[in-house]
Design a protein around this nucleic acid. Sequence first.
RNA 1: GCCGCGUUCGUCUAGUGGCCUAGGACGCCUCCCUCUCACGGAGGAAAUCAUGGGUUCAAAUCCCAUACGCGGUACCA
Length: 490
Amino acid sequence: MIRTRFPPSPTGYLHVGGLRTALYNYLFARKNGGKFIFRVEDTDQKRAVAGAVENLIETLKWASLTYDEGPDIGGPHAPYVQSERTELYQKYAQELVKKGAAYHCFCTAERLYEMRKNQEAKKMAPKYDRHCLRLSPAEIQEKLNQKISSVIRQKIPEGGKTGWNDLVRGQVSFAHETIDDQVLIKSDNFPTYHLANVVDDHNMEITHVIRGEEWLSSTPKHILLYEAFGWKIPEFAHLPLLLNKDRSKLSKRQGDVAVEDYRKKGYLPEAMINFVALLGWHPGGDSTQEIFTLEELVEKFSIEKVHKAGAVFDLEKLDWMNWQWRKRKFDELPGETPQKLFGLCEAFLPDEWKKDKEFLQRCLATVQEKVLQEPQKAQEHLGFYFKNSVAVDPALLANPKMKVDLPTAKKSLEAAMKALESFEKFDDQEALKAKLMEVVAQLGFKNGQVLWPMRVALTGEAFSPGVFEVLWALGKEMALNRLKIALKNL
RNA sequence: GCCGCGUUCGUCUAGUGGCCUAGGACGCCUCCCUCUCACGGAGGAAAUCAUGGGUUCAAAUCCCAUACGCGGUACCA
């Protein structure tokens, strides 16, 4: 039975890189009929943030990355929060000390600082000098009895090397002399990541450790720990990093990194998942498919197809993908288009606009594409419909590109008004269009010479829906009123 | 510094020795649609496959060096 896990530390929000790591673990487990476990690694009390666990759970839920075991739903290996498992780590650390695979260290922060400074000065790799390894059992006991602050360090074997066959990188190995004697238990008695992670992965029967590349160089430490305990070593897969535009590790300084940020900006979970899935993975072959549902990803995912090189997080492609998903989800939504549009934008519109729902829905229909792209900006796109009076800027009305000057505008508006007055209601866009085209022909103008002034008079803006649509949405009374006001001010 | 990992259009990528005069997507540009913007449609520019050596009849694909980039180098994860 394949078992994967996603173990973030609750130091804030879910990072987009974390989302991808979680996704790949999820996909790998689902694809192979295994289990996906969510665990909280809160062994660094200094960095713990209140509410972060809840936020992580909420975000995972939003993304539809459901897990089989976790802190909120329990499971056979509960608890799934490391701060509630501290006795376990103590027990295993003692076992390592007994086996000679770890040792007590009483060095002060000052001494370690001095030591590193010297090593750096000599251009050596900073590494613990094993000062405390020379202590006799009696000396150690003596210091322990005196309650001198201490830690437990992993004892890396003297010679040789440790390697493994990484599922994405192939054969990787590190010489033991380059590996530091890692602290396993801190002086506050909490374990470090290295110990807690290995202990939990073993106890939770994790078979595949799929994590970011930043863990590559600590992997030999972990393997050495598994070996010291005599435990089965899981498979490892180290994912390429997500990068900023300048190709450094994706960071907050250069844009949003929290999934939460994207969610707030209106990105759909399907788009985020789809986008992040393709950053470092591709189904391969001659497939040119770009849009994938979670189910399709599960079906197509394979760890061998994960890339080795980092990928730049490109917002422009995300935007495109979000647009694709918006259209798709909108089409799949049941119901009539006007109702659907209303549902999509409801939350972003002021209540007073909703009083005349029929009018609102007409207006929405004229800005469908824009509002579909950015529902959060619906108010902005509809603004001109809800103004009591439209201010017509002469500078806007006169448009050399459209071959419109003020006299032309005046002539056009007058003729258009007259023609439109013959309608009882503005309920037929085609009829409106036919009539106005007649006006264009009579005046001997270009379409734009009539329609541009009308746009400006009706909306007060340079960019708007088509004139016939606006006439239809506003209705006869309001539309003619706006034209009248514009004419009066000419 | 040391250790490790990586390197195909600006970006995400296809590619596992001949099908590659290197394919797709995003973005960009042009045109079409058109009363504006957007949507939509059609084209286009864009990679001497990091560089230099090999191996081979044949290399983006295999090997070696170099360069560059990134990660790690904590009582953080």
